[in-house]
Every structure is written in C-alpha cells, then in structure tokens.
C-alpha cells in the first residue's frame, strides 16, 4: 500500500513538473496562479496547525514582493536571488514582530497580523521616493523575459518546497509539539514544550514562504504596487482554498487550491456576468455539505467503500 502511495505521489509530481510540455500557455498561466495560491494556502495552514489563526498572509507576501523587486531595481540583483531575499526579508520582519505578537491568542492574534499587513501597506504607499508610492515600480523586463515555462517551473518549485516543508512539519517531532499546543496549551506547557520557541519557529518559516511567493509573483510580472502586492486576494483566497480542501493537512490546501482555482477560471469563461455569484454559492455549498472539506469528504467515501468491500484494513 505504502509503495503504491509513493508511486502515485511521484507520478503526480512528474505530471506537474512536465505540465508545460503538454499544456498550452493559457492552462500554464492558470496553473502558475493556482500554485501561487497553493503555496500561500499551505503556509497559512501550517501556522493554523499551531492553533494560531493568521491574517498576515497578504502582508508578508507584499513584503517579499517589494524586497525582491526593489533589490533587483536598485542593486541589480539577479531576479532569482532577489526572490530568496524576499523570503529572508519577510522572515526577519516576522522574527522581530513575533516576539511582540506571538503571545496573543485567537482573534487578538488574527487581528494584529491583519493590522500589521495594513501598516506595511501604508508604509509602502507613503515612501514615495523609495517604493514608487501608490503607483509602484516596474522593472525593465519580467523574470526569464516572461518565458511562461520557466516562470511555471519557478512557481512549481516554490509550491513543491512548501509541500515538502508542510510534510516535514507533519512527520517530524515538530508535529507533536504543534498538535499539543493546538489541542491543549496548558498541558503542552507542563509537559515541557517551549511553546513560544515553536510558535516563533513556525511563524518565521511560514512568513518566509509567503515572502518567497510574493517575490516570485512580483518578478513574474516585473512590477509591484501597494494595491497589487497587499491585495486581500492573497489573504482570503488561500484561506478559502484551504478550508474548502480541508485544513490541518498538506493534501487539503493542495486539492482546494487546484479545484477552486480552476473552477473560478472555468466559471468566468462560461458565465461572463455573475460568475462570482456561482463561485460564492459553491463555497457556501462546500461548507454546508462538506464540513471537513473536500479531503474530509473523500476520506469518508474511501472509508465507506473500504468497510463495504470487507473492512479488513486496519488503518483508521
């Protein structure tokens, strides 16, 4: 069974990697966007696994965008290296802020991360000479001169990297700490887990991912502006995709982002006017009829068929 699973995973990764060879530029472009949201969604979910609801996704995404674009613009840094800088910059900011805000819980943490993203936006908008103000800055050319295949592979690597980090979190010692914090902080504390250290670690890592994704996005189009870099799209859509797919897992955000991302594009072409209404209705329907997300639903179906077939599997 395990071998088969590994094979399937490898096959999917290979299919994803080779996507540019059999798909045209348009599906490629759509998938690039989907992968962007997938990586953001995964990073948000990783933080959520500690019990901390973050609304700062768009904020760190934007920081990464600005850091990457401005280092290329002013220092002539290689675009690929600048994306890395975007991640490092977001991580440093997260590390500094983490000390102040990771003591907060629940909606207080959520609202503070959201407010911080607001602060970043205002700063980016008002430092006219440095950031280009509300109009933003452009680069002479997009990364790889806009070659869609290379751009896709770049985003694919970022998303794959997020998946790997997410799986590491799920499979190593960190997982026990994280789950313990989420389920019962007091017990976790008394069992000797340094909660703050773990929270800070996860916060910095996930923010770094968001920064890298932002950097890649900014380089993909060769421009950055407060409106586009800190857009609430990069906050709400990844969350919606995770919740629709199923939270507290790697597979959930992956499934959710692919399904919702492709669906929104399909609906748009099918119904030029009012497609967002249908999209909204589908989201509501997912919540009502699949309370554990699409992944939860699939698991349930799998379980049912398994028990119907014979029930000799011992997995739960």
């Amino acid at each position: 069974m395990k071998k088969l699973g590994m094979l399937i995973i490898l096959a999917v990764v290979a299919l994803g990697f080779l996507f540019p060879l059999y798909a045209g530029p348009y599906p490629l472009h759509v998938m690039t966007t989907v992968l962007t949201y997938m990586a953001l969604g995964l990073s948000w979910d990783m933080m959520l696994r500690t019990g901390q609801l973050s609304f700062g996704t768009a904020g760190f995404f934007g920081l990464g965008s600005y850091a990457a674009l401005l280092t290329t613009l002013y220092l002539g840094l290689n675009p690929l290296a600048s994306i890395f800088v975007g991640g490092v910059f977001a991580a440093i900011v997260a590390f500094a802020l983490g000390y102040a805000i990771l003591r907060l819980r629940e909606i207080y943490f959520a609202i503070t991360t959201l407010a911080l993203a607001g602060v970043f936006t205002v700063v980016a908008r008002n430092l006219h000479d440095f950031t280009g103000g509300p109009e933003g800055k452009i680069l002479p050319s997009a990364i790889f001169n806009g070659d869609p295949t290379k751009v896709y592979w770049l985003t694919f690597s970022v998303a794959l990297g997020s998946i790997l980090v997410s799986e590491l979190f799920q499979r190593t010692r960190i997982r026990f700490a994280i789950t313990a914090i989420r389920n019962d902080e007091i017990t976790a504390k008394s069992s000797g887990i340094d909660i703050f250290k773990y929270l800070l670690f996860v916060f910095v890592i996930t923010s770094a991912i968001q920064g890298v994704v932002g950097g890649a996005y900014a380089q993909q189009y060769g421009f950055v502006s407060p409106e586009s870099a800190f857009s609430t799209n990069f906050l709400l859509l990844p969350i919606a995709m995770c919740l629709a797919g199923g939270i507290y897992s790697t597979l959930g955000p992956v499934i959710g982002s692919v399904i919702l991302g492709v669906l929104s594009e399909y609906l748009k072409l099918r119904f030029p006017y009012g497609h967002l209404i249908i999209y909204g209705v589908i989201i509501v329907a997912i919540v009502l009829f699949m309370p554990h997300g699409i992944l939860g639903m699939l698991k349930k179906i799998a379980q049912k068929t398994r028990t119907e077939v014979g029930g000799n599997e011992n997995e739960k």
């Binding site: 209404i277 989201i283 309370p291 554990h292």
Partner: peptide, 23 residues
C-alpha cells in the same frame, strides 16, 4: 448548520455569503 462544524467553517461560509451579496 455549521455551528457544530469545525471552527473557522463559519469564516468560509460568511466569506461565500459576502461574495454572493456583493455580486
């Protein structure tokens, strides 16, 4: 219908409702 569902599902629900209303 979602009160007993996992926390945060309400967030997604109201997100969907907001989208429908606006559109």
């Amino acid at each position: 219908k979602v009160l007993r569902a996992p926390l945060l599902n309400q967030l997604l629900l109201t997100f969907g409702i907001a989208m429908i209303l606006e559109e």
